[in-house]
Design a protein around this nucleic acid. Structure first.
Lengths: 154, 154
DNA sequence: GTAATTGCAAACGCTTTGCCCGTAT
DNA sequence: ATACGGGCAAAGCGTTTGCAATTAC
């Protein structure tokens, strides 16, 4: 896979170019972030990292997530109430649709948000720096499951 | 104000009608929620409540916030990463605009969200249950402050 | 060599819970 | 009378921090 070697190169380049030291842990975490499902939490990442380096610590994961966030490599989301989710920043603007039952996250394009941003900014005299649209609902597969498993709602 | 006597009556009625006991603490909290600024956190509410009843405990505040949420009286928001904010449910649909500097919360109407809801729901075959639009930015007064207090950006 | 980074464990802030006593019904 | 709700203190959770040892530069 050309992808993965490229990814590793990128990790190193990104860290170097921001004059951050390239440690094994950092390279690993960056690598994992780039190749895992788009939305992870600290513990996900920690568990995955331990498979490759069993001595890595949770605090290292947290510290580096903060670093990556500061470097603008990832974004932090507060989807549910409990803990944070992280997502590698992609060029493409998108919003999130979450299934309240299985937690699945779907990304969707939302061009309207730009118009909204302009309009609301002007209306309230704010310098808008971000727009987030979050929709919640039941995904197709959870909907059909629910129809089967809750036959008696007496 | 007629509003306030009505409010107290409502608190009692609401609790009674859902067969919850009307305790002094519940009535007080409900009262405070209805008459304080629209977005509070548990500690805000706790501090306010203590002024009227110095023996009330923080856990009572939390327990009742959960109850009120379950009864559909209030909504829980996760504006910033730290803690939750609560808002008395109003009939009118609205979205939130937050100042990243002073934390001010502005509510705005967003009729587009309905169209969005329909469109995205259909597109991804989700049963949409909620749409949240959150914008962040700098409010007018913080913007002008910033211009004054950061003259040297050498 | 030296400053940045790690692992560990302890602390953190917000929230929840167990227990026993008090109170609304 | 009795089950529900309260106060208190302790535990829980995800996250952060202090520190000594380690590592990249």
């Amino acid at each position: 896979m050309v992808e993965s070697s490229k990814g590793r190169g990128n990790a190193r380049r990104i860290l170097n170019s921001s004059s951050q030291r390239v440690t094994a842990q950092r390279a690993l975490l960056l690598e994992l972030l780039r190749h895992s499902s788009r939305h992870v939490d600290a513990d996900d990442l920690y568990r995955r990292a331990r498979k490759k380096n069993s001595r890595i610590s949770l605090s290292t994961v947290y510290r580096n997530l903060q670093l990556f966030k500061k470097l603008g490599l990832i974004e932090e989301h507060h989807f549910d109430e409990e803990h944070h989710h992280y997502e590698v920043k992609s060029g493409t603007e998108h919003q999130h649709l979450l299934c309240t039952s299985c937690g699945k996250v779907v990304e969707f394009a939302c061009p309207v948000s730009w118009k909204l941003r302009r309009d609301i900014g002007k209306q309230y005299d704010f310098d808008i720096t971000g727009v987030e649209v979050r929709m919640t609902g039941l995904c197709p597969s959870c909907r059909s499951k629910e129809n089967k498993t809750i036959p008696d709602r007496s």
